[in-house]
Design a protein around this nucleic acid. Sequence first.
DNA 1: CTGAAAGCGCTTACAG
DNA 2: CTGAAAGCGCTTACAG
Lengths: 377, 377
Amino acid sequence: MSGLTAHGFFRAIVQTRGNLALQAYGEFCGMKGKATSFDIAYLAGVSQSTVSRALRDSPAVNQETKDKIFAIAKQLNYKVDKNASNLRKQCSGTLALLLFEDPTVDDSQINPFFLSMLGSITRACTKRGHDLLISFQQLSNDWHADYEDSKKADGIILLGYGDYIDYEEKLQQLLAQQTHFVCWGAQVEGHPEFTIRSNNREGGRQAATHLLELGYRSFAFIGIASDHAPEFFERYQGYLEVLAEHGIRPQDVPQFDAISTEQAGYSATQQLFAAGHRPRAIFTASDLIAIGVIRAVQAAGLRVPEDVAVVGFDDIPMASFCTPPLTTIQQNTTLAGEMLVVNLLKLIAQESISQTEIEPKMIVRRSCGSTQVTSTS
Amino acid sequence: MSGLTAHGFFRAIVQTRGNLALQAYGEFCGMKGKATSFDIAYLAGVSQSTVSRALRDSPAVNQETKDKIFAIAKQLNYKVDKNASNLRKQCSGTLALLLFEDPTVDDSQINPFFLSMLGSITRACTKRGHDLLISFQQLSNDWHADYEDSKKADGIILLGYGDYIDYEEKLQQLLAQQTHFVCWGAQVEGHPEFTIRSNNREGGRQAATHLLELGYRSFAFIGIASDHAPEFFERYQGYLEVLAEHGIRPQDVPQFDAISTEQAGYSATQQLFAAGHRPRAIFTASDLIAIGVIRAVQAAGLRVPEDVAVVGFDDIPMASFCTPPLTTIQQNTTLAGEMLVVNLLKLIAQESISQTEIEPKMIVRRSCGSTQVTSTS
DNA sequence: CTGAAAGCGCTTACAG
DNA sequence: CTGAAAGCGCTTACAG
């Protein structure tokens, strides 16, 4: 098929000149268009079907034939055309990662937590021989969730969501279209197997327990605490739970909304103070918020942790570099990325999914005044 | 073509029942396999060629016909099969990003500088309607540089390199295969148009100038200073240049190798001290190194900046969070990512490339003792 | 173990 | 403005 004219010309040469001409043929292919399986077939003196089988290492091909074909393929620098192969096989060996970001003023900075997730997802994909397509979504009308529809990807990983209420709608759409997808954090109604998430409630409990152990008795929470941000909400609830167990009533724990940015944490803290609250300890829904809180506390002339203790959530790289270093609840992004990929692959292969939850881990640093700091090498 | 049997059955229904049946047909397609352009053609009563033209908004199609086709396509949730379309068009609308990392002990953490590049590259791609494939390279034998050969991508962006000497070989390979690529930082022999880079020499000059202005007179450099890491080497040279202009001889500026990790910076600093040097100011090849240097200085019982001033390079997010906040030379990652994508696209389109260099910018914080801190909102 | 043939779903000359 | 046809480069029954 390929090169019925020009390639045919070279084939004639090959026939008369032998090995040397193979090189000429190869160089020719290097110059104008890539070699195809037909070219290899011609040079090896076999059919194109046999080449295709040999290259995929089918057991139905003679070893000698295989060797010859591999040698020629290598010499021509032949690579299977993925578009043709995918078209025929009706799958792509590719996963798509859709990253939704909270809208920020300066949108050059991505949430560092998602960044490390991105890192581990990429690794997990590579490890399993899959490619990864990445796209940032503006959460506007145009969801590029058509990656699977357009056959560019076999499935989709969803990371981050602006307002969860808006997000849920989109999720339902994916469900209706029978798209293969997994998402981080947000539960899909009726489909727990589509989600990988931290045990956020437990994380909130750990934060509260740590603060209580250090003797604090007045608390606050900074971060959205509603269905608009279910993960934050769960952290908040776990926190309140433990506080309640120790006689501190929810109505005595002021809460101010903040999306996951430093700026939002800063503003919310100003509001907290403006409302007359002076909590001794603040649990925040994320490290980015915590960093903003710390700045606001310091800007108000108070010290962390001497006047106000602060606990974050995530354990982003920055957490250990703030002043003071931030005590936080770590989410294991390596494991999370791994599970996201593994579970999606299982979903695509119609296998059943076992694990979907990740245990949070308390990382003690200086921001709460504890003297027993978690050692991290 | 598609569904000669089952689809044909529905076609019959459509003919007798009209509009309502279109929905049935749509649902049918939703259940088993996606709709194709043939399905739309059938439903619209036109040829498949016309559907294909209409969907790409060809001016050669009647507006009425277009409207009808668009409506049906939407109803069937039709999406062009990219594999088929790419196979036919022989291009992919996709760029591949190959990330090479310095080998680190804990390889879960990616260099934050590359992470922000990744962010801006992704954005730049999205902005131009291209998809982005991402892969981490182990810089072992298997270069996945066959992205273009296998038609998965139209071109490749190279970010990071271990040892530049090893790397250069690979570059030559890409060159020989006529792969379209651009790379960050590393110059390609004879092809300046393939590289986007900071003016590293100028960055080194700025660091030296700043330190001299603050009155320091004894210096050191931490970071590889050889052809194995050309970018670092240039920074070093710019630094030495300015120092030399002020009467400080290169041989009086101790230099210790470090790859771009905190750990390497820490070790190199220990070596510096062990060799008996006590420089008043240290310029480092990267922020990650600088952070390690600061830790080592503090571990030696000295203060930054009172006893030793430290300047970094990159301005990664962490730089503003260290103690003390790090004075550094900023590389504009937003612009860099943008240029990488734009230039690669130009290369693919055979257009000429104008800009390839980015100007570094001094960001003054506390780590050198300056009282005039750069304001960053 | 190997080959001839069909077909994946598009795009694009070519002809009208 | 529209249609019939070829073909992009594979994979995989089917037959031998």
